[in-house]
Computed example of a mutant assay.
Amino acid sequence: MRRTLRARIFLSVILALPTVGLGSGAAGAVPDPSPDVTASPTQYSLDQTLEESLGDRSAGSYLDSRTGELVVTVTDAAAAEEVRAAGARAKLVERGTAQLEAAMNTLEAQAKITGTSWGIDPRINQVVVEADLSVSVRSMTQLRKVAAGLGKAVRITRVPGVFTREVAGGDAIYGGGYRCSAAFNVSKGTRRYFLTAGHCTNAAATWYASPGGLPIGSRVGTSFPTNDYGIVQYRTGPQPPGAVNLYNGTYQDITSAADPIVGQAIKKSGSTTRVTSGTVTAVNVTVNYGEGPVYGMVRTTVCSAGGDSGGAHFAGSTALGIHSGSAGCRGTRGTAIFQPVREALSAYGVAVY
C-alpha cells in the first residue's frame, strides 16, 4: 500500500530522470487518469484506516476515474467483506502487498540504475518502472532481465526527458545561489516555519525572499537523498498565512494534510510553472537520482520545470506533498514526483495551519 509499501524555493539545478516504456508481462492497459476526480476528507480517512487494518491483505487503493468511488484492492474474501462494510468498493487482485514489495526489493538490489523509478499502481496491481532517456542500452538490457524474472508483477515503460531535481514550489525563495519554491507554512507552538525540498535546503543555511534581500529564515532540518524534505524557521517579524499562492491574485488556504490516493486530481504551485494540474498515478515510488535514491515518493501527471522544486502539491485545502523533480512536460502533461508531506510533518513535529 502507500506508505506501508514505501506509496517552494526555486533551485535552478534540475535532476533529469528518463523513463523506460517497455512492457514486461503486461496485465492490461494502464487506465487513463481523469483530472476531475477529487478525494473527500472522508475518503482520505477511510483510505488510511483500511490501509492500516488490511496490511498484506491489500495492495493499495485508488479512486475510480468514472465514479470517484474509493476502490480498495484485496487478496481474499474476508478482506473484501471488511472493505464493503467500511463503505468502500473491494477489488480482488492476484498480488498483495508482500509480493509487490518483494518485487521492488529485487529492483532495488539488482537494478538501481540512475534514470529509473518504480512505484505501485494499484489500478493494475503492478509495480510500474519508468526509465528515462539517460538509461543506456546496456542498462536497459539489465533492467529488462531483472523485470522478466519478476513476471507480471512488473511493467516497464520508457518516458522522454530525464528525471531532474527541480528546486521551486509556491513562492520563490533563494539561497546558496539557487532559486527554489516554498511548499507549506507550518507551525510548532508559536514558532513558524516553511517546508521545502531537501535538495534545496542542502544547498544553503540561510534563505531569502529575493536575491540580495534581507534573510527571511534559517535552515533547521534537511533530508536528501533517501527523503526529499527540509524545513526553514522564519525570523522574527510578521508571520505569513498558511496558504498557497495560486498565481492569479488569490491564495488557497491549507487546513489539513493527508496521504494522496491514486487516481485523485491534484494541483502544484511552483515559482516556475506556477499552478499546474494533474492526477496521482503511483505511490511508494523509488526515484534513482544521480545523487542517490529517494523512497516512498508519489508519481503524478503534473507539469513542472526547473525552479519548481520544493513547491506545494495540494487538493483543495488539503496539503499532499513537496515537489521533488520530474522528467519534464509533454504539452500539459508531465511526470512529476513529490515527497508526501505527512512524513515531513511527522519528522519535524510541525503542523499546517
Results as ranks from 00 to 15, higher is better:
Val137Asp: 12
Thr141Asp: 12
Val162Trp: 10
Ile173His: 01
Gly149Ser: 02
Phe194Leu: 01
Val128Asp: 05
Ala172Lys: 06
Ala148Val: 10
Ile173Glu: 12
Ser187Asp: 00
Ser181Ile: 07
Thr164His: 12
Tyr178Asn: 12
Arg144Glu: 11
Val154His: 02
Leu150Ala: 07
Gly177His: 07
Ala168His: 07
Arg192Val: 14
Lys188Phe: 01
Pro160Asp: 09
Thr164Lys: 13
Lys188His: 10
Pro122Ala: 08
Ala204Asp: 09
Asn125Lys: 03
Ser181Asp: 11
Gly189Phe: 06
Arg138Pro: 00
Ile173Gln: 13
Ala197Ser: 08
Leu150Val: 06
Thr157Ala: 10
Cys200Phe: 02
Val128Gly: 07
Met140Glu: 13
Leu195Pro: 00
Asp121Gln: 07
Thr196Gly: 06
Asn202Val: 12
Gly177Arg: 08
Val186Tyr: 06
Gly198Tyr: 04
Gln126Ser: 11
Val186Glu: 02
Ala209Ile: 07
Ala131Lys: 00
Asp121Ile: 03
Gly151Trp: 00
Thr164Met: 09
Asp132Asn: 13
Gly176Val: 05
Asp132Met: 09
Ile120Tyr: 01
Pro122Arg: 05
Ile120Arg: 11
Ile173Gly: 12
Cys200His: 01
Val127Glu: 03
Gly169Trp: 07
Lys152Ala: 13
Gly119Tyr: 01
Glu166Trp: 11
Ser134Arg: 13
Gly176Leu: 08
Val159Asn: 09
Val159Ala: 11
Gly198Trp: 05
Ile124Thr: 15
Thr164Arg: 14
Thr164Leu: 12
Ala131Trp: 08
Asn185Asp: 00
Ser136Asp: 07
Val159Arg: 10
Ser136Thr: 15
Ala197Cys: 03
Leu143Asp: 02
Gly189Gln: 03
Ala205Trp: 09
Val128Arg: 12
Ala204Asn: 08
Asn202Ser: 14
Trp207Ile: 06
Val186Gln: 04
Arg155Lys: 10
Asn125Val: 06
Ala168Tyr: 09
Gln126Val: 08
Lys152Thr: 15
Gly151Thr: 08
Ala182Glu: 14
Ala205Lys: 13
His199Met: 06
Tyr174Phe: 15
Pro160Met: 09
Arg179Gln: 14
Arg192Phe: 10
Glu130Tyr: 12
Leu133His: 09
Ala197Glu: 00
Lys145Asn: 13
Gly151Ser: 06
Arg158Leu: 12
Ala182Arg: 14
Tyr178Ala: 11
Gly149Trp: 06
Gly151Met: 05
Ile173Pro: 03
Trp207Phe: 11
Gly151Ala: 07
Cys200Asp: 01
Val135Asp: 06
Asp132Ala: 13
Thr164Trp: 01
Val146Gly: 07
Val154Ile: 10
Gly198Arg: 00
Tyr193Gln: 04
His199Val: 02
Asn125Gly: 01
Tyr193Met: 04
Gly149Pro: 01
Val167Met: 13
Trp207Lys: 04
Arg179Ala: 14
